[in-house]
Structure formats: C-alpha cells, structure tokens
Write a protein that binds this DNA or RNA. Structure first.
Lengths: 236, 236
DNA sequence: CAGTGGTCTAGACCACCGA
DNA sequence: CGGTGGTCTAGACCACTGG
C-alpha cells in the first residue's frame, strides 16, 4: 500500500511503539539503549536518538540521563483540546457561519473587571457582545472585554466579517492563553438569544489571552448544551 | 538568575520565539533560512535544524521544503487538556480521594451498548457504578462498561483501592482514546448521589478507550457543574 | 538552476547514574 | 568506573520549490 520508504528514525519509532502498544513491553520495562538500537537497525546514534527523543516528547517513554529509557506510565491519557476560532471550526464542518452584532461599546471597568484585565478601576475597556450562527442556528453567545492597549482600533472593525478572536490574534502577538470549561445555566439574556429555555444547561468557556505585559482579552463563550460539545481523540 | 548556559539549540529557539512573541515577525513573515541562522549563531546546521524543527512541532512556524520557513498563523490556539485519572488529580490538589462502590455486575449488552463496544448484541459485559469523593464531597459519578476481553478479571478487583482507569491502563495497553465533554442535567439517580438538585447542570465526560482490536471501556463521568471545571493553559 | 528544508553519518565531549 | 542519554559538529545526499 505505502510504497514510500519510511525514514530510518520513523522505522525505529514504529518498532518501539509497536512493542509498547502490543503489550510486549509494559510500563516500567526498560527500552533498549541507544547503542543497542543503533546496532539492531544499523543506523547512527543520532538517528536512534532522534527516534527515542520524539517518543519521549510524545510521552510514550521516559528517559533519564545516566540511567536509561523506560516505558512510561500511561496513567495520564492526555489529549489535545483544540481551542479554536468559531469561524474556522464551523467552516471545517462544512457549514455556514454568520454573526449578529448585539453590542459594541466602550465602558469604564469596575473593580472586578479591572482586576481580571490587570488595569486600574475606571480604565477604559472595549466591550462587545456577539451571537454566532451555524447554518442559521444560534450556537455561541460571545461576551468579550478587550484591553484597548492591545487593540486600539477594535471597535472600528466589522465584526460580521472578522471574529474578535481572529482580529486579536492578528493585532497582538499572543504569548499566553488560559481557559476553563464549565457547565452553567444561561442568563435570561443568553437564553433568549440562543433560543433555549433557561433550564437548559450550557457549556461555558472562559478564555483569557495575554500579549506581552497586557492581558489582551477576556471572553465568555456560551454554547447550548444540546447543540454543542467539545471532543477530542488521542492516539498511540 | 539562571546561571546554567542554555544549549545552543535552545538559544536559537529563544531568539526566534522572542521575535514572534514581541511582534517583530508577524504571521506569514519569513523566518531566516537555516544557513542564515547557522552563520548568525555560529553553530552547525543540524543544531539550527533542531531548533526550528521543534518550533514547527510546537506550531509557531510552518516549514515547507524547497520554499522556506514562515511564522505560522496562530489562529488555532490549541492547548493540552489533561484527561486524567481522578485519583491522581485529587491527590495533586492536595486533597483526599475516596470511592464508594455502588454497582459491580456482569450483564448482557443490548443493541446500543454492543454497538458502542463493538461486540455482538447479548455479549457479556462488565458494568460498574462508582461515586468518587474529594475530601468527602461527591465530585464524580462514574458509570462504566468494560469489555471482558480487555480485562477478564475486572470484577474481582477492589475498586476502593484502584480506580478502573488505572487498572485498565495497566491491564490493556492503550492504543487510542476519545472523549467528549457536554453539559447535561443529571438523572434522578445521579443527582441523589452527587447531592445536588436535578436542575443543577453537570459536566459530562464520555470516554472510550481502545486497546488493539478491542474497545476496552466506555465511561460516563458526571461532575457537578458548581464544583468542577476543566481548565488549561497555553504558553508561547 | 540555486536555495530550501529533510535526513543521515561517524565521530566527539559532557553530565549523570548506578555499581 | 562503565554505560547512559544530551548535545554538537562538519560534512553529505536528497526532494522539493521557485524563478
């Protein structure tokens, strides 16, 4: 089927990975040393080193200098959760994305908001509220506060054409982001716009992005629980 | 502060990363070629290659053979969501974990369950229901179905001492796992055991693990929305 | 075609671990 | 101490891109 010859380091990786996934080597077992694998495959040590190093990065093995390499404890199944721009995500599903702009304003930060954005109380802050549709069905209610220092012209852009996420990533180089995912009931406003009952649980993602010394943006993204879920897959 | 000298490839990485995070190089801009960086830092090309290759793996740059390296579009903020054993997670928070076993049984799979576990209808399946406590407070309601082919002695273990997640990872080498996170209202049973109202939204994680040709396990993990959230952080 | 990145080698020196 | 992995070099050949 696959006529192309795999690179040597991929062959070494595949061999070690197969021993692990097929159960021949279990957690804690020693993996052959680099010199052993080097002889077994007839390649240079740099090549073996690259193979095993990548497996270590992937978390399949643990390496200790001076001691050796062992099969890792796989107790931490970790997976990549994509935190993405809603626009790209909907397009990738082959659906149509549209945005309704509910609020675009500047305001003065109260104490709580100022603390979150690391500004002083009373500082000027941009505030937008958007409703995102997937094929005409409301899918995300987005309430966002933006630090003017990170994007001075944020209020002037056409939010029906560019999502705040995309614009902010273009404006302010991202240095850090954190998020949390919770289950909540929607507020009366959120329920009305999302066209759901107030008793219907929602997934709420809160996202904070940092650009250099500034907190660039805080977003609260509300998804109807019946129409949306986060998912992921982990292989190997 | 940091008296140790960084490896050469880390210095190259740090340099490129700084240009990007400080905004000197924006999305789509060309990154100097390997030979240029090689001369700039006075190191071999293998060393530069390693540095830039790792940045590509981290998603900061995109490399195209024959063409060059450019700063990546950072539109996909992706972060690692740790899907972990509840036991380890609670211990890491410095709290005490305990388990109450509600159900341990074998049963015959109905059509829906058989399909999910890739078994034939009527096949024998293990079923456990557990309640996990963090410092005595119920934090997770775990309803799990296990394929006997992956763990024949699953029903015999002491589930107050070893979580199913841990046991299964030790028994059956993991080859694949997928999960989804939703917001739901709890069933009457779940609400009673979690000591919450039926109107309180919950985070529900559904996990499926695959070991070789078998689907090893399907778990439904229900967390009270007010007591639990998933979170993560992304840097660089 | 020249320039790029992808891979590979045969050495080398070092820091570290365990006996 | 010998064996391990971490790093690095100075070459090399290749596949691919672009003009």
């Amino acid at each position: 089927m696959n006529a192309v010859r795999l690179p040597a380091y991929e062959q070494v990786k595949a061999f070690v990975k197969a021993q692990i996934t097929q159960g021949a080597w279990r957690s804690g077992d020693a993996v052959p040393s680099e010199s052993a694998l080097q002889q077994q495959f007839g390649v240079s040590r740099m090549t073996v080193n690259r193979a095993v190093k990548e497996l270590a990065v992937e978390g399949l093995v643990t390496r200790v200098r001076g001691s050796g390499t062992v099969v890792a404890q796989l107790h931490r199944i970790s997976s990549t959760l994509a935190v993405r721009d809603i626009h790209d995500e909907i397009l990738e599903r082959g659906h149509e994305h549209s945005t309704r702009v509910l609020t675009v304003e500047g305001l003065r930060a109260d104490a709580a908001l100022a603390r979150q954005l690391k500004l002083r109380a009373g500082a000027r802050v941009f505030h937008t509220v958007l409703l995102h549709f997937e094929d005409g069905v409301p899918i995300q209610f987005e309430d966002r506060h933006v630090n003017p220092a990170a994007a001075p012209h944020f209020l002037e852009i056409d939010l029906t054409q560019t999502t705040p996420t995309r614009y902010l990533l273009e404006q302010a180089p991202l240095t850090e982001a954190s998020y949390s995912i919770e289950a909540c009931l929607p507020s009366a406003t959120e329920a009305r716009y999302l066209e759901i009952k107030r008793s219907e649980p929602c997934l709420v993602m809160t996202r904070r992005t940092v650009s250099g010394v500034h907190v660039a943006s805080m977003g609260r993204l509300v998804y109807p629980g019946l129409r949306y879920s986060f998912g992921g897959k982990f292989q190997l």
